[in-house]
Design a protein around this nucleic acid. Structure first.
Lengths: 227, 227
DNA sequence: CGTCTAGTTGATGCTTCTCAATCGAAGTGG
DNA sequence: CCACTTCGATTGAGAAGCATCAACTAGACG
């Protein structure tokens, strides 16, 4: 329930603290204060190919970013939780789509060009860089998952990651629906479902809240399954 | 056969031109001139978990970067060709392994902290940032491939990408072996081989140079297969 | 000329997908 | 307040794609 403002502390490396971008003499501030916006469940925040003039930081809710193939197949790169920044691009257009998983509040920051940004506030530039490298890092981990892990291994990895990112120790709250999980892990919705019920049978997890919360009964066992 | 030097022109967005980092008054130059190093086929350039004090730029040859699971399964993130930069990290240790695919010449640049680097040469910092965003971009594309594409679609995408990156229009020269391709595309070596021979039967490609060169006979057809 | 490594090809099986039915929870309207 | 609809999730049966295991081929090298 963090609906206050943008200086919300960030828990994961991708998040960028936007403090310290305040004092710049000549140019206008690139991303100091932003505009608050709200999106309903399933609403599109921006689409692949769209021109990008702003980037976003999640205040509350969950955002999914990903790509679509021509025939409708979908790959969800990441889920963004409160504190996370998304929508930064190297070019003039967005290379992926962002949608609200549930009710989402974001802050939109004006995106000036990087030269200006970095020149005016090198520390901010460095933070962006580190954030980018962390994203790249996680992208690489996800590639291992997509390319080389089995369904069970994918699910185990996902559950532990969600639990860790949202700092709820031994439970993973899943605001996204099964379809989203499937498209994130490179599986079908049926396999996601089957894998979860099998994990319940094996005593690894317990489902609550109509399947929206996964209680990690045996974290050690899950960790073994991550490969 | 480009074995001359580091100012070799880069063809793909990830590449960073390191010119223009020459004049800085107070601090020592962060990454202006580097040390030339050579690696033999299969040799390790750095390993996952190793401390990283330098990052690299390919002068000639091909480098593969990737990760290993405990049981030996491997995922190759990317192949790096002349002009490409690799080995930049946000933390103190390398998060992936880099190995020489064939005989490789690289230049190693001292890695100072980013603040210093960016402050001393904002333009260089911006270039690094753009390079990073491009890598992220390609990582996302590769996730779609790994998570949602079939074997044929993966091969077609790969061949076209290699041909485009190495700027050899209608032929893809493959310095890496089948195992590397398999571990890059999330397939087995057998499936890679079978897919290629099937493509030959379908008149899409032709193999030359003992299978090391793939001539793209029907680029339009291949493009259709990319999905 | 034998050995070694990389690649190809074949037969078989397993994991995951596909198609389809069912279930359950959350509305919605009579 | 209760059928009715709807949407998401689960479960089942069968199919398919790719992996696995194994044999074989072709260069490369001493």
């Amino acid at each position: 329930m963090q609906t206050f403002n943008a200086t919300h502390t960030s828990r994961i490396p991708t998040a960028i603290a936007l403090r310290g971008t305040a004092n710049m003499p000549q140019r206008p501030q690139p991303a100091a204060s932003g505009v608050r916006r709200t999106f309903g469940r399933g609403e599109e925040i921006f689409a692949e190919g769209e021109r990008c003039s702003v980037f976003f930081k999640v205040v509350s809710g969950t955002v999914r970013t990903g790509k679509l193939l021509a025939d409708g197949r979908r790959q969800i790169d990441t889920f963004h939780f409160p504190g996370d920044v998304f929508g930064l691009e190297s070019g003039e257009t967005h290379r992926f789509t962002a949608e609200a998983v549930d009710k989402v509040v974001v802050i939109a920051y004006r995106r000036s060009n990087f030269s200006g940004l970095v020149q005016n506030d090198p520390a901010f530039g460095e933070q962006l860089m580190i954030s980018m490298l962390s994203s790249l890092d996680r992208a690489h981990d996800h590639m291992v998952l997509l390319g080389r892990k089995s369904a069970v291994e994918k699910m185990a990895t996902f559950l532990l990651e969600i639990a860790a990112r949202r700092a709820n120790g031994d439970r993973a709250e899943l605001p996204m629906q099964r379809t989203d999980i499937a498209d994130h892990l490179g599986l079908t919705i049926e396999t996601v479902s089957r894998t979860l019920t099998q994990m319940v049978r094996d005593g690894l997890i317990r489902l609550a809240d109509a399947g929206r919360t996964v209680i990690l009964e045996d974290k050690a066992g899950l960790r073994l399954l991550c490969a």
